[in-house]
Simulated scan of single mutants.
Amino acid sequence: MQFDPQGVAPEDLSHAGSVVDKAIEYMIEQGIAPISIASALLGGALGMLSRSMDDRAVAGVLRSALSSVEAGELAEMRRAAGEPPHAANL
C-alpha cells in the first residue's frame, strides 16, 4: 500500500472499500442491526488507525470526519441515494 503524505488516497482504497461493502451486505443479510454493524466497523477502524498512527493523527482523522458530518456531507449522500432525512438524535 502506497500512502501519499500529501493526502492522496492509497491505491488500494477502492479494493478495501469493496471488501467492507461486501462485509456490510453479509451482516445485513444475517440480520445484524445497523447500529451494531456501524459500531463494530468504527471500533475496527479505530483499532487499525491506532496501530498505524499516533493518537494525535487519529484525532485529526476523527476531526475531519466530524467536519464532514457538520458540513452536511452525509445528508447530501442520503439525498443523492433518495433516502429520507433522519431526525436529530442529539
Rank of each mutant, 00 (worst) to 15 (best):
A45G: 10
G82L: 05
A87P: 01
G72K: 08
G43L: 03
G17P: 01
F3K: 09
H86P: 05
G7Y: 00
D4F: 02
L62Y: 01
K22Y: 13
M77N: 11
A16D: 10
A59I: 11
D55G: 13
S67K: 08
D54K: 04
E11L: 14
M1T: 02
D4A: 03
I28C: 11
S68M: 07
A9M: 13
S67D: 12
R51Y: 13
D4E: 03
I24R: 01
E83L: 11
Q30N: 07
R56F: 08
A87V: 13
A33V: 05
L74N: 11
N89T: 06
P85S: 02
E11S: 11
M53Q: 11
H15N: 06
G60D: 02
L49W: 10
I24T: 05
E11F: 06
V69L: 08
I24H: 01
R56A: 14
V8H: 14
S50P: 01
A81L: 15
L13S: 02
R78V: 00
S18E: 13
H86F: 04
D4R: 01
V19A: 10
S67Q: 12
I24F: 08
D55N: 12
P85Y: 07
S18A: 14
A75Y: 09
P84R: 13
S39M: 07
G60K: 04
A57G: 06
A23N: 03
D12M: 09
S18L: 14
A75Q: 15
K22F: 12
S39T: 15
I24V: 15
L42V: 11
Q2Y: 15
E76P: 08
S50T: 12
R79I: 01
D54W: 06
S50R: 05
E25W: 08
